[in-house]
Structures are given as structure tokens and as C-alpha cells.
Amino acid sequence: MTTSAIMLVDDEVSFVEAISKRMGKRGMEPVSAFSGEECLELLKSNEHIDVIILDVKMPGMGGIETLKIVKQKYPLIEVIMLTGHATMETAIEGIKMGAYDYLMKPCEMDELLHKVNSAAKKKQTHEKKVHDWARFMESGSLKELMVPIDEYATVSENANVFEAISALEEAQNSFNPERYRHRAILVLDEEKRVVGKLNQHDIIQALEPQYKKSKERSERVLGHFGFGQTFIESVSSHYSMWDNPLQDIYKKTFEQNVKSFMHVPTEAEYIEDSASMNDAIHRLIIGKHQSLLVTGGSGVVGVLRLTDVFELLHLRLKALHLAAKIGEKSDGEKTSLEEGG
């Protein structure tokens, strides 16, 4: 078994020192904390901790309260409650709340090590499972990560703004609730080919009164972030953009059609479904795109969203982090996101 990372939390300094000295002799290097607050603070920089030995009774934040927060923030870390005779009931309460076990003070070193080891083993087994899942996902391709086209809401290019708003709302409410909500809809031409994208930004911009007049100027404003807030404010007050009654805006939703303000994807926003994940990430970065349209045999087959790519990246990094801990070299050697390039 790999050595486990342990944290000792007790306000009784002599106890902490004695135990860590004895653990030190066995090649363990426990992190020491002398209050619940300090324990939480130290966890921020010691996320690799497997087991916390936590005293039930401490001034300030008590053991139970600390346990609650630890379990909420780091559900996988195992906690062993350290207790005296008088606080035994609290310790049992702790186990019911998810602590792994308890230790009675003064404790036998063998018993302590036994309990620490089995708690650490439980945590490491679970981490291994997480790690396996993350690795399993690494073999995933662009196709698996993208949102299939049939899950996306679409409107016809001749639809008006009101219809587009309704479609976007529907898309946000109904599809695939386990992922992030959709923030965009696709625009189809008469032959059901994807010709554009619409997001909330496009729609609100289209509704802006005197949109056409301000368009040129606002593009300049948005295009060059060098303009100060004062300048942007003066532009909007000059055109008094949102001062018109809502009635006007409502009318406008029926007048304009989607085609006139949708975002027409450039060539760089299309990517083949056989392309590599690296290529896709590169394109997202270079073009500052929120998503790419994935093309397959029959035209656009899905949308690859920045949020999904980000989450994948995050999980892979986490997997590497775990792998480094578990001691698997193979994973650490790969710096590329691609499995086998």
C-alpha cells in the first residue's frame, strides 16, 4: 500500500506532537493542526490528505462542525473522530454523519495505525475508481463530447425574433438537464442545413431600439476594448437605447427575421468529426469561439461547446493529479490531451 497522507487535528498540542513523532518513526509525515479552523485552512493547500484524525472537543469550531464542512467540501476524505470518555456520544454522532470511525484517547498506536490504514484504503479505492473513470473518458472522441444536433433547438432562417426567443427558452428548459443549459440555437435553411447560430447576446442586440444606427458604432466599441466605460455610456445615452416603451420592443420581435442578425459561422468554426481534440481546442482558443459546429457525412452532426471541452480538460487534469498520487507513471508521461495523439 502507498503511504497515506494524514492530518492530525487536536487542540492538545502535546498529544499532536507525541503522535506525529511516533508516526514519523514509521515513515509517515502527518500534517498538524490545532483547531478546526486551522484544519480547514490547511486543507486548502493539502487536498491530497487521505485521512483526518479529528478531536471531537475543541474550543472554537468543534469536531462535529469541522467534520460537516470537511465532508461537504471534500467528500472523499475520511475522518476518524478522536474522543475521550465524556464525548463518546458526539463521536458516534460523527460516524453517523459520515466519519469513518472513532479512536478513544489515550490511544494505542497499533489501533490508531490500523484504523488509519483501513480508512486510507477506503479513500484510495474510491479515488482509484474516479481515476479509472476519468481515464476511460480520455479515450473519448470529439463525437462523444459534442452535443448531437438533434438535441439542439433549431429555428428556420425566416423565423422572427419572437419565435427565436421561444425556441431558445424551450431549449434551455427541456434538453439534457445533466449538462449545462443551452445558450444557443441553430438556424436552418429550407433544406434543413445549418446556416447560422443565435445566442442570447445576438437576440438582445437585435431587440435594441435603433439597433441598426448604433450597430456600426457598437461594433467598434465592442471590437476594441480600449474604449472606456464613459464613452460606451455616452453612446447609449445618446441613442437612449432602452428608453422606448416595451411595446415597441415587442412589436420589433415580429418585424425582424432571424436571417438579418444571426451569427453566420466562418469556415474556422466548422470542424470534422474525425478531427483531433487538440485541433478542436486550438480552434476554440484562436477564434475565441463559444462552440464549434462538428461536420460529418451528412453535414453538421453536432455542436462542440467550450464548456464541455473545459470540463473534460478539468477532469483529465484531475486524473493526472490522482495518477501522480497513486503512482501510475504511464499517465503522467502524456502531456498531450490526445490518447496516443
Partner: peptide, 13 residues
């Protein structure tokens, strides 16, 4: 298709 959620769920216990 929901592998990512699975991994997140595993991290949550």
C-alpha cells in the same frame, strides 16, 4: 453519453 457527470458524481461521493 454522460460520462463526465459520472466522474463528477464519483468525486462527490
Amino acid at each position: 453519453a454522460t460520462m463526465q457527470v459520472a466522474a463528477r458524481g464519483m468525486c462527490l461521493g
